[in-house]
Amino acid sequence: MSASPTPASLTTEQSPAAPKPWMLWVGRFFALVVVGMLGFSAAMKLSMSPQVLEGMQKSGFAPSTILGIGIAEVASAVLFAIPQTSVLGAILVTGYLGGATATHVRQGDNILFPVLLGVLAWGSLFLRDPRLRALLPLRRLR
Rank of each mutant, 00 (worst) to 15 (best):
W122I: 11
A18L: 15
T12K: 12
F29N: 00
R139W: 04
L120F: 15
L24Y: 07
I71T: 04
T6M: 14
A81V: 01
G89V: 12
G39S: 10
I69E: 05
P130D: 02
V93W: 11
G95E: 11
G108Q: 14
I91G: 02
V78S: 00
L127V: 09
V87S: 04
P137V: 06
P130K: 06
A42Q: 00
D109W: 11
R28T: 13
F29C: 05
D109A: 15
L120D: 08
L116I: 10
T101N: 08
G108H: 15
K58R: 04
K20S: 15
F113R: 10
S15H: 06
M56L: 01
P83N: 04
Q14Y: 07
S76R: 06
S124A: 13
S47R: 01
T103G: 09
F61H: 12
L117S: 06
L10G: 12
G39D: 03
L135S: 12
W22I: 11
G68F: 11
Q107V: 05
P137T: 06
A121Q: 15
G68L: 08
A8T: 15
G108C: 13
P7R: 11
Y96A: 12
G70L: 02
E54S: 09
G36V: 10
A77L: 01
I66E: 02
F29L: 15
L46E: 04
L132W: 11
R140C: 03
M23A: 15
T12M: 12
L32A: 14
A121K: 13
A31V: 01
I66M: 07
M44E: 13
L141F: 14
G70T: 02
G55T: 05
L67T: 06
S49N: 07
K45H: 07
H104W: 08
Q107E: 14
I71V: 12
M1L: 09
E13C: 09
P130T: 02
V115R: 11
V52D: 02
Q84Y: 04
R131E: 10
R106K: 14
K58Q: 04
A75V: 14
E54K: 11
D129V: 02
V78T: 02
M1F: 05
R140D: 07
S9R: 03
I82M: 01
R133L: 05
L117K: 12
L116P: 03
A75I: 06
S4M: 10
G70I: 00
